[in-house]
């Protein structure tokens, strides 16, 4: 795919609003993402990451690290929303910076009802201390690819079991069992790596 790179004055209004993408390019990017290929998404969004940070720094007088974290949170959340079909071609630049602004506000504890909508998107690390996260990393690394794939498809990419089963040419019931076994295996490895276990 030809990734368009243009000075701001050479883009149409809709392209300016959508990180230089035409609607067809946006649809292609989305199709690639849904097929598990994020390369184009990463090129487009990471190349605009600094712009978003600068916007936060200029508009909210935030520090470099605050702007970085808020932009990163927004990037991860935006990606998820795209995969869920909640982001349409229109004004992605505005949506993305708005989302980053909301994360920044939330991080500055200025959270009021107007920012509550992003709570479901935030990573809630507080419940998981460092030891647990390290154990989880090790357990995940140890988990066979097939098991990881099932858990990732179902819990992270939110692909229905029926669809995962179809791609593997097995029944939904067999897929459910495979998912259960994968989760059991993950928990077993987790217990092996937890310091208190």
């Amino acid at each position: 795919m030809n990734i368009r790179k243009a000075t701001i004055t050479q883009l149409s209004t809709s392209e300016k609003k959508n990180f230089g993408l035409e609607e067809s390019e946006f649809n292609t990017m989305l199709a690639h993402m849904q097929a598990g290929d994020d390369r184009l998404f990463e090129k487009v969004f990471l190349s605009h990451f600094k712009d978003c940070m600068n916007y936060l720094k200029n508009s909210y007088k935030s520090s470099q690290s605050e702007a970085y974290d808020a932009s990163m949170d927004a990037l991860l959340a935006f990606r998820k929303r795209m995969l869920e079909g909640k982001v349409k071609y229109g004004n992605m630049r505005f949506l993305f910076t708005k989302m980053a602004s909301q994360y920044l506000m939330a991080s500055k504890k200025k959270s009021t009802s107007e920012y509550l909508e992003i709570k479901d998107l935030r990573l809630d690390d507080q419940e998981l201390d460092n030891d647990v996260m390290k154990a989880f990393d090790k357990a995940w690394e140890k988990l066979p690819h097939e098991n990881k794939n099932v858990l990732e498809q179902f819990y992270y990419k939110k692909t229905p079991l029926k669809m995962i089963a179809a791609t593997k040419n097995i029944t939904e019931a067999a897929m459910r069992k495979q998912k259960q076994r994968s989760m059991e295996k993950l928990k077993k490895y987790l217990l092996e790596h937890l310091p208190s276990a």
Binding site: L76, L123, D124, D125, L128, M133, L151, Y156
Partner: peptide
């Protein structure tokens, strides 16, 4: 879902 997403988001964050 939360704990797996947390792990995969952390990995993605590191990559980015």
């Amino acid at each position: 879902e939360k704990i797996i997403s947390n792990k995969l988001d952390r990995d993605r964050r590191k990559k980015y």
